[in-house]
Structure formats: structure tokens, C-alpha cells
Design a protein around this nucleic acid. Sequence first.
DNA 1: AATTGGTTCTGAACCGTTACGGTCCTTTCA
DNA 2: TGAAAGGACCGTAACGGTTCAGAACCAATT
Lengths: 341, 341
Amino acid sequence: MSNAYNRPDQLSPELRRRVLDTARRLGYPGPDPVARSLRTRKAGAVGLLLTENLSYAFRDPAAIGFLEGLALACEDAGTGLLLVPANPEREDVASVHRAGVDGFVVYSVPDDDPHLAAVLERPVPTVVCDQPDLGTVDRVGIDDRGAMYELAKHLIGLGHRRIGVVCMRLARDRNDGFVTPDRQHAAHFHVQRNRLSGLAEAFSEAGVDWSQVPVVERFDHNMASGASGAAQVLDRDPQVTALICTSDVLALGAMTEAARRGLRVPHDITVTGFDGIRAGEEAGLTTVRQPVLEKGRAAGKLLLDTNERSRPRSVNLSTELIIGKTSGPPRGGAEERWFGP
Amino acid sequence: MSNAYNRPDQLSPELRRRVLDTARRLGYPGPDPVARSLRTRKAGAVGLLLTENLSYAFRDPAAIGFLEGLALACEDAGTGLLLVPANPEREDVASVHRAGVDGFVVYSVPDDDPHLAAVLERPVPTVVCDQPDLGTVDRVGIDDRGAMYELAKHLIGLGHRRIGVVCMRLARDRNDGFVTPDRQHAAHFHVQRNRLSGLAEAFSEAGVDWSQVPVVERFDHNMASGASGAAQVLDRDPQVTALICTSDVLALGAMTEAARRGLRVPHDITVTGFDGIRAGEEAGLTTVRQPVLEKGRAAGKLLLDTNERSRPRSVNLSTELIIGKTSGPPRGGAEERWFGP
DNA sequence: AATTGGTTCTGAACCGTTACGGTCCTTTCA
DNA sequence: TGAAAGGACCGTAACGGTTCAGAACCAATT
């Protein structure tokens, strides 16, 4: 009787001792956690669904920050954190079905991802993060659109009108190259779609024809992609005065490419990022800082808060525009370009 | 009948469709993963036990590398990775008992940690990493002692005899300060014990009285600890020509402290680390590079390889001495100290 | 002595699935 | 035509715990 293990008060110390003794003698390894979970309908763990290969997440500083925050929340609650393998290339959602968890956190997956759909079919609470608001499950995010709009306004104020953009993948298919406005608009990654849309709005308001702005997409998210993306933009239009990247990692890569071409930042060209990662900070990157750790923590808190009645909830965390030393007025001054090319 | 879900070949398409239809109509959410795990005796996940607060692991570059490698192996095998909360301050082992997993990976916990004991009592395969060889379970590690011995030999060859050491925590209790040889010898962290012992051996062979060498311990593992540890060593003996740190993170901190004191590295003082993390590489740190990612991957492979007959296995990965630009001969040349104090 | 109250202990039901063996029906071949 | 073989389908028994109802026991009260 497993009362001996879990409810020492329900039986006499004498019997408890006897039970535990014989248990040990028979080599009983203690109550089986799975059987317990079945009966109590509590798995004692939350699942985390990441878009990327599991291992890839550990390379992205923003993802690591999110993980840290989520782990923090789980730790507080004494629950485990199950990393669910969700290979984006395979359509195999078995891993989602197999996960014995009390809830899911879904972090930045494409909105048409079959794994996401599989999660939503499971009868457990779910929190989506950096995803569109589904209205049916909790959500944590930031105002990507507004933050990027503000950053764009800063650049516009400096006088930039001829810009280029390097962004992360917009859909599940690999498309390393220029992006049509259609593809931008139909992007399946909520975060990227909104950042681009914030840019488009601000620059359109400033009289820039957005359809003419070179926007380059990169599937892999690392500095090399930022560098090659920047190169592609600069090859197309060497006259751009600012390279706007939708992440700090891409921006840092773009800066190496600028350096390789002998362009001084910000004198010859302005480079901006998004996220506010440590390495960007050290480089003095102009960027939008978002509270990645808080995002993870908020997601965990929302999921583990059993207060059902108020669902679904939506949490928007605030961001901060960081004006670093990688942004400045276009070469030759702003005025020169007032009546631009 | 869940055959409809899992064994489409066992029944006619017609029946399958009918079953699935009524299932949907009745709001059946698909087979319950926990019940399945109970029946099949497979949880589809491996547990990871970390010494630190879960979230803390995401701050340590070496731990992140390990996690990445382990996640990689899990991904290949299609299993989940469950981060088990193991607050080192509480003695609460319930989280270990509650974890529904097919095996455990234990990474760098003190050898007297109750969580480790709890894992070993569970009737599932276990792989320990950066731990003493228990003889009963698989092990992955490096030759910490030999690698540190080699690094010490390099410094001795340069002429260093008067050194100081900054190391990570040696036991579960907090002891920020100097370490007696006794405590070094009795250290509960296998990795730290062996690194110190490699140092002691090499310098003893070179005629240095190890009991006189200042060894400072820091409980928290971050750059600030490295800086304050270095300060404590330099306050005790401003004449040390080399600061040997048992991790790169500590070494980077030590370098900031050296800079703060106006000491040039390596001209005025030599600083060395251990791990081979990216930030250290960028700083040109002299260190021992260890394959952290491979360690994680090897641990995962060992655990997921169902070949029972060859257990327990022990894997030693190789390390590489990296001679960077933070080590050089002691100020005033090596010869001066040949007959030194 | 019978009722009441309380504690300790026992047994059975249940959680939801998969494995297994048995029934039934159809097909194949002597 | 009958027996054997095979496929489709179905019912049931674990898997290993937790929970809960009620039995058994003892002590105190009426």
C-alpha cells in the first residue's frame, strides 16, 4: 500500500515500518510515477514546443533567455519542463501526442505548424508566446509592430529614406532571397510579419514606396545569415543608408559585412537590430530591447496558474527602444536626401 | 479502440473511419499519453538532473553546450528531454520520484547530492556526466586531472612558481574564501577536485609547496566571482605571477580585476581558464578546451542505446590545451625566479 | 450492554491504454 | 465439398498506482 509512502499520518508507524521493510526486501523501487500520473491526472511537467530543432534553440540568445525564464517559473512551481522534439521538417506530430504533460507552452512557431495544431487538440491548457492571439488560449507577447514602428520613426527622424531590410524566415519553406510584399503580408511567423508591417507603415507614412524597399529573407538564424543578407541588400542597392534587421543576431552579422566592405558604422551606414541581446549591447547596437526572460516567466506563470475562469488571457510585455552607436544620420546629412534620388 | 489511431493496418479503412468519426463526435481527444506510457512501459523522455537551479544552467556557456548536445541526441531518437527541478538547497527529492522518464542523465552534481542518490534508486538506466565513476552506471567525462596537469606544465615551463588559484564551489555549503588542502581533497564536485589535484601534482613536482598556494573558492559561478576571487588572491599575495582559474567564466572575471588594478595580461600577470567557451576564445584566453557539446551528445547516445549487455560503460572525451595570449613568462623573465622564494 | 465516535486497516474500483487470445467470416486448395 | 488458413474484429486482462467506502477494532459514553 502506497499510503506508507505518501500519507504517513494515515497509518500507524508500526505498520508503516513493516510495509516499508518488506517493500525494500522485495526490491520494490517506490511508487511508479507514470501510474501515479495516470491515476491523479497530473503529469507534473509542462511541455515546451519550439519551432526549431531542439538543439538549435540553445544557439539563439533570445530563445535561451526565454527558456531561462520559463525554467524559473517551473522551478518555483516544482514542475518539470519537457522539451518536446518537433522537427520542423518532418510532419511527425507523434511527439506531441506522446508527451505526458499538464500543459503546453508554444514558442514562436509558424502559425500553420502541424505541431501547433496537434497541441491545440490536446485537452490541456496552452500558452502561446510570440504567436498570433488565437482567442482560445493564453498568449504572451510584445507589440512587435509598434516597437518596430518606433524604431523606424527614429531612423526617419535621422533622415533615412533609402533603406534595406534583413529578416528571419517568414514561412516554413526555405526562401533565401528577396521578399515580395505578398510574402511579407502572408508571413506565417507572427513576429516577423508584425515587425515588417511596423516598418512598412512608418516608412510609407514618410513617403517611401515600401514595395521598392529591398527586403531579404534568411532561413537560418545566425550571424552568417545576417552577413550574407546584408551583402545581398548592398549588392542590389549600394546607396542604402540604413540596414534594418529583425534580430540582433542578424544585425551583428550585417555589421561584419559592412566592415568587410569598408563601410563605417554609423558614419557610412546605419545598422539596427531587435531583441536586446548581450552581444548586441556590447557592440552598442541600436535596437529594441524586449524582456525575453520575463516572457518565459510570464508564460510559465500563466500556464501554472490554475485559475480557469479568467482564461484566455493575453499579456503584452513592454519593450524599450535602445539608441546605440550604430545609428546616425545618413552620410552627407539628412537634408541632402530630402529631395532624394 | 485505439488501434484506429496507432495500427491503421490492423483494421479495415471503413471501420477505422467509423471509429474515428464517432470518436470525434464524442469529443475524444486521442489516446492519453500517460495511460499509454503505463501500459507500454515507455515514457518517451529522458530526465536531466542538474545541480544548479534549472534557470541557472542557462547562464553557464558550458552547461548550455552540454544541453545542446544532449538535446541533439534526444531529437535524433525522437524522445523528449525533461528538465527535472532539483533545487540544491532543498532536500526535496520528490521531483526525481515524480519524473516519468525512461532514464536519467546526471550532470555535474555534488557526489553527495540526495537527488543523485534518488536517481540511482530508480530502476532506470542512468548516465552520469562530470561525476566520479560509480562503476554501476554509465559515465561520460574528460580527464580533468590530466588536462589541468598539462596546463600547469605549460605555466611551469614559462617559469611560473608563485601562483594563485580561483575555483568553483567545492561542496554544497557556501564557502567564499580560501580553501584548506583538506577541503580541496574532500571536494564533492568531481570536476573541481580533479582539476585542483592536477594542479597540485604538477606544481609539487616543480618544487612548489602546494599547501602555501592561495586557492580561493567561489560559490556562485559568474564573472563577478572570478573578479572578486582574483582580488582576494592578489590581496593575499600581490606577487603571484599567474592566476589559474578552473573555468573560463572565472578567468574572464579575473581579467577584469587585473585590468582594474592596472595589471597587463600577460605582461604583468598570466591568467588561464578551463572549458574553451566562445567568449574566452575571443579574449584569447589560455585554457583547456573540452568538447561540451560532444559530452552531451555522448551522454544521450549512451542512455538511448538499449544495448544492455555492455553496461556500465565509461567514455572519456579528449581535451585540447589552447595557448592563447593571456599566458606568458613572469614579469622580469623566468630566470630571475629560478632560485626565487 | 449497547450506542457512539474515532482510528486503523482492507478490499475493490477506477484511471485509459495496449497486448493477447478467441471468435467469426472469408478465401484457398486438396 | 470440406478442411485449413488467414484476416478482421472484439472482449478482456493487465500495467501500478490512488482513492474511497466500509469493516474491524478499541475506547469512551449513555
